[in-house]
């Protein structure tokens, strides 16, 4: 098989000296550009290994001449980005939500930032545009507030949340009336509650209903004599036509028997105070904000 290398005049190259049944193999060298590229790659790799963290050592690892880490690079980017907004962020930090909303410039900045934060963090429940979802999560664009719609109320709610493990979270619990009232009484109460928001039913007719007294004895303490609700305790108003958990008699009966109560995470620790301020101003600006 093996024989002498010989010069091949047709291609101008030498052969490898191998031949099989008279067929010979050319020993064409690798293209020069390719060899140069390879060598350059080796050189770059060696330089890289000195500049950047590349090698483990027996106790820790070699950190590289540049001292680069992805974490410090991130910190630099963050600092740079924050610096561009520093003028506004400092004022957000220094002012109360009321002052932020009162200043045109600051409010514009807060609403823009708040909107981005809202879409990422709040829209899951309250929906893009804050329309809420009936049966689950309240709308934030109307003026029917469970826990209050002033800037300070919203700020408090967003910071500490509702019915969670945060120490300052808003807390309240509606008891189940399953064992306290009979089924007929519950049905009568539900009928009365529905009538409270029905403008076609006069007060006299309503007060003559069998559920009227039951309501006064069992529900009025929290929901108010006229169904006006109690924001201190997050008690919903019953005299309006906005129903979170459904507007049918059956839904109201279910709520008396097995009350649903929403829970909201505390955002203060997760997003930071500045972000919560911006969010509060944004939510307040959606239409239902109160003075």
């Amino acid at each position: 098989m093996a024989s002498e290398r010989r010069y091949d005049p047709v291609t101008g190259q030498y052969t490898t000296g191998h031949q099989w049944d008279g067929i010979e193999e050319l020993s064409t060298p690798l293209p020069r550009w390719w060899v140069i590229s390879l060598v350059v790659c080796f050189i770059i790799a060696i330089i890289y290994a000195f500049l950047y963290p590349a090698w483990p050592t027996t106790k820790t690892y070699y950190t590289g001449l540049l001292g680069w880490t992805s974490h410090s690079e991130l910190a630099e980017y963050q600092t740079e980005a924050r610096a561009g907004q520093a003028h506004w962020r400092e004022q957000i930090a220094a002012n109360t939500v009321g002052d932020i909303a009162a200043s045109d410039d600051l409010r514009t900045f807060a609403v823009a930032g708040g909107k981005a934060l809202f879409n990422e963090n709040c829209a899951g429940c309250h929906g893009i545009g804050a329309g809420g979802q009936q049966g689950q999560f309240p709308s934030l664009i109307d003026d029917d507030w469970l826990w209050g719609g002033t800037l300070d109320d919203i700020y408090q709610t967003v910071t500490h949340g509702i019915r969670n493990t945060d120490e300052s979270s808003r807390q309240s619990e509606m008891p189940s009336f399953k064992d306290m009232m009979s089924e007929e009484e519950i049905a009568a109460t539900a009928k009365f509650v529905l009538a409270m928001s029905d403008t076609s039913v006069s007060a006299e007719t309503r007060n003559a209903m069998p559920g009227a007294e039951l309501y006064t004895n069992n529900c009025a303490g929290c929901h108010g004599a006229e169904g006006e609700g109690m924001r201190m305790m997050g008690v919903p108003a019953l005299a309006d036509q906005i129903w979170l958990y459904g507007e049918t008699e059956e839904a109201i009966r279910n709520q008396i028997v097995r009350p649903k109560m929403g829970s909201m995470p505390a955002w203060g620790g997760r997003l930071g105070d500045d972000a919560v301020k911006m969010l509060s101003v944004y939510v307040h600006s959606l239409g239902g904000g109160e003075k």
């Binding site: 899951g124 979802q133 689950q136």
Partner: peptide, 20 residues
């Protein structure tokens, strides 16, 4: 963890399109 309430997680796992 903690970003949404349990009720949201439940609603979302049962029918994701109902909340998103």
């Amino acid at each position: 963890g903690g970003k949404y309430s349990n009720a949201w997680q439940l609603a979302h796992l049962v029918n994701p399109q109902s909340v998103v």
